[in-house]
């Protein structure tokens, strides 16, 4: 086949070199960041021997603990809410003919992917600050709502993709056996759809966990998440503590991605 031939049509001059270069450029800074999180010294660029001290420092830092807990709470809520809503939306919009208002619904569902984050952030700052004054409520609810909203398209897309690849025969069979629509959904559709739902929930979780700008604008007193805490730190001082936090977050992301690949692989 083509691969065995001396003249390979799939290679273009310099492409492999640039590709390898891109990977090196992408990974070298991240690798450095990870390596220096194990630095025994105080500096982010002078090696002082291997040590876990910065993980200990970060772990014992109350502000980091709070921010991490808050990030997780928001991400769990946001991914649950957005996944439930996105699953419903996917069921309502997929595997059916064209319908009135389809384009509008698609635009609204995918809007967070299109509007620049800074604009949404500013809009929510204005809107929520008035709501806060009227209701007097300043809790995490605003962040959870905002995160759930922009997570919807990320949850929606894998669920929709999964649904589109699913045959309706099983559901039809269930209906033929006099299953109620709910029973059909609960015992037929949902189990088949589950890999898509899990994938969607994981993407939503990562997206919520990583958000900086909208969180920065919407947060009230003492509502720093890990990323906004880091933003504050980065503007001020650089200690390997930030490297340690970054590495931990990075590890979490990679872990979720591996599970994600595993879950989505299974369906094939």
């Amino acid at each position: 086949m083509a691969k065995q031939r001396a003249f390979d049509v799939t290679t273009l001059p310099g492409f492999t070199f640039i590709a390898i270069l891109s990977f090196v450029l992408l990974y070298a800074p991240i690798a450095t960041l990870v390596i220096y999180s194990f630095n025994g010294g105080n500096s982010v660029n002078q090696w002082g021997g291997f040590s876990l001290q910065w993980y200990v420092v970060a772990f014992n830092n109350e502000a980091v603990q709070d921010a991490a807990a808050r990030s997780l709470i928001i991400a769990v809520w946001a991914s649950v809410i957005s996944t439930v809503l996105a699953t419903m939306a996917a069921l309502g919009t997929t595997r059916r003919g064209k319908f009135k208002g389809q384009t509008v619904i698609y635009i609204i569902l995918n809007q967070p992917l299109m509007v620049p984050e800074i604009v949404t952030a500013v809009a929510l700052l204005i809107f929520f600050s008035s709501v806060k004054v009227v209701t007097g409520y300043t809790g995490l609810g605003y962040l959870i709502l905002a995160h759930s909203a922009f997570c919807i398209p990320f949850a929606y897309l894998p669920i929709k993709a999964r649904l589109e690849g699913m045959d309706t025969a099983m559901e039809t069979a269930a209906a033929d056996l006099y299953a109620t629509p709910w029973q059909t959904f609960r015992y037929v559709t949902l189990p088949l759809l589950l890999p898509g739902v899990i994938a969607g929930a994981m993407l939503a979780f990562i997206i919520s966990l990583d958000n900086v700008i909208i969180t920065e604008f919407v947060k009230s007193a003492g509502q720093d998440t890990l990323p906004t805490y880091m933003l504050g730190q980065l503007r001020r001082a650089l200690t390997p503590e930030v490297n340690a936090i970054s590495t931990a977050l990075l590890a979490l992301t990679v872990l979720i991605l591996i599970v994600f690949v595993f879950v989505t692989k299974k369906r094939e």
Partner: peptide, 26 residues
Amino acid sequence: RTKGANGWLLSTPALILLVFAASGPL
């Protein structure tokens, strides 16, 4: 029958949240 003409109504909760916390504020 199970996927009637109003099936898209299932997407309303998502639409409401998005209008409330994303599109509306614009």
